[in-house]
Design a protein around this nucleic acid. Sequence first.
DNA 1: CTATAAATGTTATAATGTTGCAAACTTTGC
DNA 2: GCAAAGTTTGCAACATTATAACATTTATAG
Lengths: 168, 168
Amino acid sequence: MPERALPYRPHNHDACVSQALADARDICRQQNARLTAIRERVLELIWQSHKPLGAYDILAHLGTEGHNAAPPTVYRALDFLLQYGLVHRIASLNAFTGCTHAGESHRGMFLICKQCSNVLELEAPRVSSAIDEAARTEAFSPEDVTLEVTGLCPLCRDESAAVKDHHG
Amino acid sequence: MPERALPYRPHNHDACVSQALADARDICRQQNARLTAIRERVLELIWQSHKPLGAYDILAHLGTEGHNAAPPTVYRALDFLLQYGLVHRIASLNAFTGCTHAGESHRGMFLICKQCSNVLELEAPRVSSAIDEAARTEAFSPEDVTLEVTGLCPLCRDESAAVKDHHG
DNA sequence: CTATAAATGTTATAATGTTGCAAACTTTGC
DNA sequence: GCAAAGTTTGCAACATTATAACATTTATAG
């Protein structure tokens, strides 16, 4: 498995995108799911950056490309991508981000920088097992977990520390 | 500290409500915050049950009481209650629920039953520390954590198991 | 090729949340 | 008390996010 690029570190982002698209095509082929032109285009737009995109942002992008899309077009594509685990919905932002673990069974934990908006998706087995244990203690049967952490990514933290230094 | 009632167990819910209101009054007095009539009424409505309430549900309730409220009224009351830690927003539901740990410094973890909609708020120190550790490993400085688990509460799980038994 | 299913287009509408400004109410300092 | 200042509420309009319903087109299977 290749090392994954951190969103907030310089990296060849085109490689992220093409990797994600290639993975998506594989996954859909394996499951007999149709990754149509629109669906693929929406996925590609979402992967343009590591900042989650709102449905209407996507809609606007499609608009500028001459594709005369309406909200349902986008939401349907998103539903499909969510269903096959190709994107995640960030509930605290009402926005969508590419899944960096597509195809692997996983539970995402998201680190969301409130400054630069970049999102890092993690797999954190110890967190997941602690959550399961806490739920089990209450006799609760967990199914889906929404785990989103906002804060400052290393870059933005250093930056704001520098500013503070400068002024202090 | 009194034992806390579980939302999905029969309990004297009026006691929940009056306790919550009394706590809220204390907290606001201590912090010189004004728990006005509207704010208190919104808090009381949210505490009517352990099922999270949408802003427009609250609005509708207020409407039936002759209080001619508009959305900003409700959202402002909610902002206030959130600010003082008296209610929580459940991002995955766009809804609000009374905080069962008001006044205590805590990070809520929510168990949301997809069947009966009741929500149990937990403090799970081991989960929180695992999250912090995972974030720290990525050099990320966490501030707010959204942790919402959907699934089946014990009651609804037993119920659906019984139905399955019956049919199988 | 045709019957069927799946996907998309289109229009309208629902649900959720915000802005901006004016009026009413509270607190503070005198 | 009373006026000034700050806070809260009323109100109208609007912005954003998401879905419903139904027609049309495109793909797939027989």
